[in-house]
Structure formats: structure tokens, C-alpha cells
Simulated scan of single mutants.
Amino acid sequence: MYVWGRLARMMLTAKSRGRYHMGDESRLSFRCLPTDIDSNLHLNNARYMMLADVGRIDIFYRAGLIALARKNRWAPMMGGLQAVYAREIKLWKRFEVVSTVETWEDTQVIGRHRFVLEDGRTAALVMTTAGVYDFRSRAFIKIDDLVSQLGADAKPRPPSDEERIFMNSHTGLRALAKNMK
């Protein structure tokens, strides 16, 4: 229930945060609840991914992607992620998830989700790769075309060295997974 409650809260408050434009941040506030913790009494690793999902859905919803996807039989899909944990988020502590679209290339979007403690320090960083699948053409959509259909006039910046390493690692790991029996 906690997942649906957090998603519902995000949807109900989306209008007050305004439309998402490329280069903006999605900032969502949370508290580490008893249902979020592991045996060390801090936010468990799976919960980081779930809260990153909420931040990503906030961007999709506020940018107009959810409505456009429903209209065109598209589906935003995660490709993969990498997470690093720098500091713990302890039980009952407040924190923010700051989500951004960092850049894109061809059909791949690079997103970032930073988990920020009340004192401003980063607790964790999650980098994601995602795309939008068109069920009619059975192919992923070029992100430049998608951005244009969303009414944005944005161009991607070149991926940073870290983003390029992540993208290459993701491509290699995906190929490995597809070739396993």
C-alpha cells in the first residue's frame, strides 16, 4: 500500500509543481518509514529503486509523456540502472528524491535520481537508462522525436564520461543477459 500511497500523493500534488521542462528537477519529499527499512534500520536498497520510480513517473506525468503514451500506444520502459550508496537514510528521517533527465542519445534517455538528506548531503545516487517503446511499430522511439512531440525545444548535451561508461556497461550487460539460457 505504501507504494500506491506515495504514487497517489505525487499525482495529487503534480499540478502544484507545474509542468516539467527539460533541464528542470523533480523534487519529492519523503520520510523513511518502518515499511522502508531493513535489519540495519535504514532505507533498504529496493526502496531506493521504488522511490526513483516515483520521481521518474513524476517527470513523465508532468512533461505530458503519460498522456501522449496512452494516446499512441507507447510504453516508457526502464532499460537498467546503477546505484551507489554514500550515506544511510535512517528510520523516520526526512529526505528528498531529486530526479532529472540528464541527456539522451538515439532511443536512450539517461536519468538521475539523487537522494538528499535534510542537511543537503547526498545519501545515494541512481543513474538510469530508459526508452519509450512504440507497440505499433515494435521499436523504441527516437528521443529527439519524442521531445519534439512533447512540445519542447531542447537538445541533449553530450554524455559525460560517467554517463558514457554507464551506457556502454548497460549495453554489454544487456547483450550478456539476452544470450544467456
Results as ranks from 00 to 15, higher is better:
76 P>K: 06
20 Y>M: 14
91 L>F: 12
41 L>R: 10
46 A>I: 14
97 V>C: 03
81 L>E: 14
60 F>H: 12
103 T>I: 09
31 R>Y: 08
105 E>Q: 13
36 D>Q: 11
73 R>W: 04
93 K>G: 00
62 R>F: 07
28 L>G: 12
103 T>R: 07
19 R>T: 03
52 A>Q: 08
19 R>A: 07
98 V>E: 02
46 A>K: 03
16 S>M: 08
65 L>V: 01
81 L>M: 15
105 E>V: 04
19 R>C: 00
93 K>Y: 13
96 E>F: 04
80 G>H: 06
83 A>V: 14
30 F>L: 01
35 T>P: 05
57 I>L: 07
16 S>Q: 06
28 L>P: 02
109 V>M: 15
38 D>F: 01
61 Y>I: 01
72 N>L: 03
94 R>A: 10
95 F>A: 01
55 G>W: 09
93 K>S: 05
78 M>K: 07
104 W>H: 14
41 L>Q: 13
60 F>S: 13
60 F>N: 15
86 A>E: 11
95 F>E: 00
19 R>Y: 04
60 F>Q: 10
21 H>M: 13
40 N>V: 00
89 I>M: 03
47 R>W: 02
91 L>D: 07
59 I>W: 06
53 D>R: 12
105 E>L: 04
15 K>S: 02
99 S>V: 12
50 M>A: 04
29 S>C: 08
55 G>P: 09
96 E>H: 14
43 L>N: 06
17 R>P: 07
104 W>K: 15
83 A>L: 12
106 D>N: 10
48 Y>I: 00
47 R>E: 08
109 V>Y: 11
54 V>E: 00
93 K>N: 04
20 Y>C: 15
100 T>W: 12
70 R>T: 10
